[in-house]
């Protein structure tokens, strides 16, 4: 009987492991495939004859004389000025993350320390706002922004993204602040701190893990945004994601689709790095709402 149990356990283990292996291939293979292919020419990456061409790259050898080519990257970054979009993305994400965190820590702290009825309503309103598709709000921005003549510039997009991120940010920070005992700031206030001093000098120093985690998600939300930045920024101020989308319209006809592939890979690399360095925080952030809230 022990034998039968053992055998069943091994089969189960094999099934579980192979399922996991399939998932891992599905999850990761597209990225590595595209990364590798971005150093080839179009005839190889989109080869009609055989997918093996994308790996070995005979056309790349023929056309450029090397196994790998930087043509796609050169075309995207220099010729099509992708660096401008990368710079804009940098400005937008840094500003949005910083402002979101400042507003969010203040608001989240207040919500976690007040026991009154209105905190409930604010949190519920935030939940509803969080559920609203961003593009529905964009429809409401355009006419007023045209009228005020603030359409198309980076500060507008930054302010809008901060506001759109607020519901999420205060929910997450609220749940992190809830895990910090109230006695901490109350004893600081007994010692003569004002509410703000207690917040700034006593609570925030122990909140860093929560702040960093929330910051990562604010960063991701602004970095990954397409709806807002595509509709609110003009051609010169576009960030990376809408820029890549506008690449698509032209590259297909020009036969320079590898520019778009290179741009996509370039925009993916920072996200890769982010997961690599902050994996623990991202995992804890994803579960924060579930476990604590």
């Amino acid at each position: 009987m022990a034998d039968a149990v053992m055998r069943r356990n091994t089969t189960q283990a094999i099934v579980a492991t192979s399922l996991l292996a399939i998932w891992l291939v599905l999850a990761a293979f597209p990225f590595f495939w595209t990364l590798w292919g971005s150093f080839k020419v179009e005839a190889d990456f989109f080869s009609r004859q055989s997918w093996w061409n994308a790996i070995s790259g005979p056309a790349t050898m023929l056309q450029t004389g090397g196994h790998f080519t930087l043509d796609g990257y050169r075309g995207a970054w220099i010729q099509r000025e992708f660096w401008r979009a990368a710079l804009n993305t940098g400005i937008v994400t840094v500003c949005v993350t910083t402002i979101s965190l400042v507003f969010g820590t203040l608001g989240g702290y207040a919500l976690s320390r007040s026991t009154r009825r209105y905190t409930f309503w604010i949190l519920i309103a935030a939940l509803v706002f969080r559920a609203m598709p961003h593009i529905t709000l964009v429809a409401g921005y355009l006419l007023p922004f045209f009228k005020l003549n603030i359409w198309g510039v980076l500060p507008t997009a930054i302010v809008v993204l901060v506001a759109i991120n607020q519901p999420f940010t205060i929910w997450m920070l609220h749940s992190f602040f809830m895990s910090i005992p109230k006695d901490l700031d109350e004893s600081a206030m007994v010692d003569g701190c004002t509410r703000f001093q207690a917040f700034r000098w006593v609570v925030i120093p122990v909140m860093w893990p929560g702040v960093i985690t929330t910051g990562l998600f604010s960063f991701l939300l602004s970095y990954n945004d397409f709806a807002v930045t595509a509709m609110l920024l003009n051609q010169d101020n576009q960030t990376m994601v809408p820029k890549i989308n506008s690449f698509l319209g032209t590259v297909q006809t020009e036969g320079t689709i590898m520019y778009a592939v290179a741009a996509v890979v370039s925009a993916t690399v920072p996200l890769f790095m982010l997961v690599m360095f902050f994996q623990r925080q991202i995992v804890s952030g994803l579960t924060a709402g579930a476990v604590k809230g």
Binding site: A110, R116, A126, L137, A139, Y141, R195, F196, F199
Partner: peptide, 26 residues
């Protein structure tokens, strides 16, 4: 109430201006 209002103000104002008003505008 006063402390609460001061702390939550930036966040609420941002959400009011760019979420509640646009909904009205829509």
């Amino acid at each position: 109430h006063r402390d609460f209002a001061a702390f939550i103000a930036p966040s609420l104002i941002a959400m009011f201006l760019f979420i509640v008003l646009p909904v009205g505008s829509i």
